[in-house]
C-alpha cells in the first residue's frame, strides 16, 4: 500500500489480531480453516477493499469451499528451491523518462505539479 502509517491510532494494528487468529487456526490442526463472515470483512479491511451488499456472505461461502480445496497442499513434501537466480544490474545512469506532465496525465487530482491524494485523517 502507499501509506503504511495507521491513522486510526490503533498501535496494535489489525495485523496483530490477524496473527493471533491465524495462529489459533493453525494450532487447531485437522479441523481446517474456519472462515466466517467477520473474517472475510476483516481481510477486506486489511486489503482496503469495500464490499458491496451481499458480497460478504457470498465470499464467505465461496472461500470456505476454496480454502478446503487448498487444504490438499498439506500433502506436498517440503522442498528446497533449486533455482539459478542471478542479479541483473545496470549502470545508474540518468536516462530520459516521462515528463512531469505525462506522469500526471492520468491523475484524478493534481496541484502545482504534484499528485493530490485524499486527506490522511
Amino acid at each position: 500500500m502507499t501509506d503504511s502509517s495507521d491513522p486510526d491510532g490503533d498501535p496494535a494494528g489489525s495485523g496483530g489480531e490477524e496473527g493471533a487468529a491465524g495462529a489459533a487456526a493453525v494450532d487447531g490442526g485437522s479441523a481446517g480453516p474456519v472462515v466466517d463472515a467477520d473474517e472475510v470483512e476483516h481481510v477486506a479491511e486489511l486489503a482496503r477493499v469495500r464490499l458491496e451488499e451481499g458480497e460478504r456472505e457470498e465470499f464467505t461461502d465461496q472461500f470456505a469451499e476454496i480454502l478446503e480445496y487448498f487444504e490438499a497442499l498439506d500433502e506436498v513434501p517440503d522442498l528446497d528451491r533449486e533455482e539459478d537466480l542471478v542479479n541483473v544490474m545496470r549502470e545508474d545512469d540518468i536516462e530520459e523518462g516521462l515528463t512531469q506532465e505525462e506522469a500526471l496525465s492520468n491523475a484524478a487530482e493534481t496541484e502545482d505539479g504534484f499528485f493530490k491524494g485524499p486527506k490522511v485523517s
Partner: peptide, 23 residues
C-alpha cells in the same frame, strides 16, 4: 477500490488471507 469486480475482489482477498500472519 469498491469499483473492482467480484472476481478481482475475491482474488485480492484470498491473496491477502494466504499471506497474512499465521497462514
Amino acid at each position: 477500490r469498491e469499483a473492482f469486480g467480484a472476481e478481482v475482489k475475491r482474488r485480492i482477498l484470498l491473496g491477502t488471507y494466504a499471506l497474512s500472519a499465521g497462514y
